[in-house]
Design a protein around this nucleic acid. Structure first.
Lengths: 153, 153
DNA sequence: CCCAAACGGTTGCATCCGCAACTAATTGTG
DNA sequence: CACAATTAGTTGCGGATGCAACCGTTTGGG
């Protein structure tokens, strides 16, 4: 249970929380990407768009960008790819003709239905290394930090 | 203290730990980058190289790559930039003439000495939003996950 | 009612990044 | 001792990304 006394003189990257968070996020992401990249041919932005659109009944690119905190151009390009692969479709049906409603196609829903359980199972496997208490402590810490940085929705 | 009951049917990105970790890491990194980017003109790879080299008495690019978990080409380019700016210097003095020892120049040490306290202060400010108990819980969780994923040094 | 400002979304461009291929030096094996 | 395999580090290249500029639409103030 090392809880680090910060060094006065220099910086120890390995004990520096911003660095550790980043390294952990990358590690976890790599662990997950096996699923959506190798088995479904999605990259990270595409996966996030699928995840967002799949859990709604249609939404705008704007909403996806806010919800995933990705840059709108990144969303735009991911959506374009997914549309080419006929996993999602866009309808300009809304009252506001600037926006286009993004929805999963039948094929998209099929992929989503296969993908999500696998991904949630991976999350479960990962978190299983923590005791109930540890998990709770981690989630509380995450939530407090998110709140402090104004990140959570 | 929401600790989420995972939805059975779909995926809620906002409650998905890998996504939350990534978002938090980006948020924290942005919070820090004000310092090293705007005030010192460093980008992320350069900042990591400075942090690593500064806390040692000279090291190889290889060591920087392992320690920061950056790709060796990313390290190579960051080191090249920093050398142009005369913040670091390379000496091929070692026994093994393939490697080059990377060290801070006088200017580099000056920057490091100004930079590190600011960055550590930012970390402190960030973590101050947590109670002692919460901080401890977070660090324990981080450590367990790092260990599970084989990330820590 | 009109025009400027704001907004959703896309695209050109410059930059960043990782992979693969490369150079140069070292190590190990016969 | 020689040569194949490995390692430190760099570079060419294609793909991803963010910024700024843009298009078309909507909104709001005078």
């Amino acid at each position: 249970m090392t809880v680090r006394a910060p060094t006065e003189l220099g910086l120890e990257l390995a004990a520096f929380v911003p660095y550790r968070l980043n390294r952990l996020a990358v590690g976890v992401s790599d662990h997950l990407s096996d699923i959506y990249r190798e088995r479904f041919g999605l990259d990270i932005p595409e996966w996030r768009v699928m995840a967002t659109v799949g859990s709604q009944h249609g939404c705008t690119a704007q909403h996806i960008a806010e919800s995933t905190r990705m840059h709108k151009t990144r969303v735009s390009r991911a959506v374009a790819h997914l549309e080419e692969r006929e996993l999602i479709e866009r309808a300009s049906s809304t009252a506001d003709r600037r926006e286009r409603e993004v929805r999963l196609t039948k094929g998209g829903r099929k992929m989503y239905a296969e993908l999500v359980p696998l991904v949630l199972e991976r999350e479960r496997e990962l978190l299983a290394c923590l005791t109930k208490e540890q998990l709770r402590g981690l989630l509380v810490g995450l939530e407090t930090l998110e709140s402090f940085l104004g990140l959570q929705d």
